[in-house]
Amino acid sequence: MNMLLRAETMKTQWRVVILLILLDTLINALMGMEQLDSLKEFFPPSWMSLYIHSVNLHAMFFYPLYCGIIASLLCMYEHRDGGWKIALAFPGPRYHIFYAKYLVLIGILAVVQLVFMLGYLAAGKLAHAPGSIPWGTLAYTGFGGWLGILPLAALQLIVSIKVRNFGASLALAIGYVVPNIVFTGFHSTIGAWLPFTIPYYVMMPQEAIYAPRVEPYSLWAIVFFTGGLYLWLGQRFFERRDWL
């Protein structure tokens, strides 16, 4: 497994990944700073309101979208020139290949989250945000947002393995992220069954006036249930599939 992980990281197109991460961080940090200033009539400036401004687009749009993009990216070179045939010559359990990819995917998603937080902290310092840094919220939403994207990551990986075409896979990811504005309006016990809504439910602090209606116990139950289900489905799918 260790060796497989090393092989996976050697294949990953890090330049694209780094570019994506920087893009997310920059856009959302700048957006946060801008809104901190322009919306100060409605939201008194503070570290918390800066966070709410920054996380809005990140959790609703960028994070689930990146999950799709990075999953497709990790499969793109496997589809292109018979890479799967190289990977499947691995003399070990076949589902290890699936999990190696999954681990790299969620590893990258953890970095996305971390760098986003760093970007937020830098933005707060630059904008001289008043008050104290809400460390508790940061820790819960940062780690929780990552946990919440795990089901989507499993599902996206299955889709990216099935759909050979990078463009199609990308279009699909955009296709479900855009209506997120509507879906996250539902109560979390309903909306969270759609895995791309979860990061928003978790990451948008309840202090925000437009915070979604969240019931944490059922939310986490759904995360663990669907996450386990999709992983199990993915593993089975990967093992039984005909590799043509």
Partner: peptide, 19 residues
């Protein structure tokens, strides 16, 4: 032939040896 086009021939071989 199967290969990872964005990597060098050497790295392709290295991936196989790793696995």
């Amino acid at each position: 032939p199967s290969y990872y086009g964005h990597l060098s021939g050497y790295t392709n071989l290295k991936i196989v040896t790793l696995m």
